[in-house]
């Protein structure tokens, strides 16, 4: 038995080293090479730049709370919302009183600025990653009047921007329709910049 173990230990160690080199170094290195050549933008994180400066990533949401901005989903990351160095959800259970309290507070805050109507679900529920970049077209519609009013823009032009940033279901049937909040707000800023010629608000 002992002899068997010693006899097997050698191939076990060598096999681990060899397979580690293949699957742990060669494989990621090869994929990196091909990915950087074929899809350089995605492989580097779909970053958004402005004036040579990185201002975010298209796939990673940011916190927006200004009155002239579209607001994204609540984020439960800590210590600050939309912390892209520590992703995560709230993990609050369905019957946890804290969850209902959060929902009630968020709904109230939304109603204070948007009137007493029904509130879109995803605007009162924290996302799974805390970095969800999207809201539904309905939630964008819900905020549209406020954003247009605060920015002194006419509703049709804001509506056109929302339509431009609305992504349909992928391949026509996959997933949900969605609006990228960061990209929409950047569009708004550049529209405002054009209108007032004063750059970002």
């Amino acid at each position: 038995m002992i002899r068997d173990i010693l006899h097997t230990l050698r191939p076990a160690c060598l096999m681990l080293v060899a397979l580690s080199l293949i699957s742990g170094l060669a494989y990621p290195a090869m994929v990196t090479g091909m990915a950087q050549a074929l899809f350089p933008r995605q492989a580097n994180g779909s970053l958004v730049t402005s004036g040579g400066k990185v201002v975010g990533a298209e796939l990673i949401g940011q916190q927006f709370s200004g009155p002239g901005m579209f607001w994204g989903r609540p984020s439960a990351t800590s210590p600050q919302p939309y912390n892209a160095a520590a992703s995560g959800g709230s993990n609050l259970g369905p019957t946890n009183p804290q969850r209902l309290k959060n929902v009630a507070e968020r709904a109230e805050a939304l109603r204070n600025t948007h009137g007493d109507g029904p509130v879109p679900q995803e605007l009162v529920a924290a996302s799974g990653s805390g970095l969800d970049p999207h809201i539904s077209p309905a939630a964008a519609q819900y905020q549209l009047v406020r954003v247009a009013r605060e920015r002194g823009l006419d509703e049709p032009s804001v509506r056109a921007l929302v339509a431009k940033r609305t992504e349909g279901r992928q391949l026509g049937f996959l997933g949900e329709e969605r609006v990228n909040v960061l990209m929409l707000n950047r569009d708004l800023d550049s529209l405002a910049g054009k209108a007032q010629n004063t750059g970002k608000q």
């Binding site: 995803e122 529920a125 924290a126």
Partner: peptide, 21 residues
């Protein structure tokens, strides 16, 4: 939660990502 938000209920979105639904 549906009682608080009112209107059409689209399901339990806490901890879910919008793109997946």
């Amino acid at each position: 939660v549906a009682a608080i938000t009112g209107g059409p209920f689209t399901g339990n979105m806490e901890g879910k990502e919008l793109r997946f639904g």
